[in-house]
Design a protein around this nucleic acid. Sequence first.
DNA 1: GTGCTTGCAAACCCTTTGCAGTGAA
DNA 2: TTCACTGCAAAGGGTTTGCAAGCAC
Lengths: 154, 154
Amino acid sequence: MPDPKQTPMAQSLRQAGYRLTKPRMAVLQVLQENNASLNPEEICRRGKSIYEPLGLVTVYRTLEILDELGLVRRVHSEQHCHNYASAGIDRHYLICRECHRVIEFPCEGLHNLIEGVRQRTGYTITDHLLELSGLCPACQQKQETDQHSPANSD
Amino acid sequence: MPDPKQTPMAQSLRQAGYRLTKPRMAVLQVLQENNASLNPEEICRRGKSIYEPLGLVTVYRTLEILDELGLVRRVHSEQHCHNYASAGIDRHYLICRECHRVIEFPCEGLHNLIEGVRQRTGYTITDHLLELSGLCPACQQKQETDQHSPANSD
DNA sequence: GTGCTTGCAAACCCTTTGCAGTGAA
DNA sequence: TTCACTGCAAAGGGTTTGCAAGCAC
């Protein structure tokens, strides 16, 4: 990532008439580098390593703007409701419960399912949210390794 | 509903060793009569018509117990994260954005979809949350009626 | 230089906790 | 009668707002 000002997210921000400031670039960079759902506090902590004076209030305000522009998406889980994930995440995603990484998945089957529900219930369905959670391959492997290591009885 | 003490939800509460008190019965009754996702404040307001002295704090505490017993489910939506719906709602439901009614739908297709995602991504998928939202038949009809009425230009 | 943006402090709101009185078993 | 439960008041924690200084343009 040679120049944060050249990323698509940064460009979108400018095109929408917002100024490209250091705090905003820091938030953008955190979300781009961590493909995970993070809460504002965590984003702020990580953002401080990029731009030290970054304040939590600014993170909130920046997230609001980014959400409005569709550059980030709020991710709901059983515990947290103010987590955010980087752009490109559509309304169906897969979260690793260990590392909180978020990925999208192809959703052809989803549209069929929704159509079926519409026919059976008579509801007009205008929106959906499908959140799957589990373990990503890396965390699965890590767990197996941990189990095989005799010292680790946690 | 002749006797609220005889409902399955009330029985479950007793079986779990909790006392069946008037505030709790009021909360139960609200959730049973309104198949909608309601926030604690709304539950409290409606509960007061059943048992006037009902307090918001008790609603919170009761909801916590009911959630623990699996009698109610927390429903997440884009705006609210502390809404609750009556028991029986599994992790896939359909919310009407007008009347907030919540219904479940058959989910055979969902398991296929999840299995497909598992194969493609290598993730172990242990949990899911599928929330569809739109308009229920009643609210659709109401909207059409409103459109046909010339006085209503809202 | 202009005025959008920032960070601090404080306000705000929703949720949780402490406690003494109340009532279900 | 006992002690789990309740409601009030207050504390708590996360989010939003007000404002003067700062900086992108």
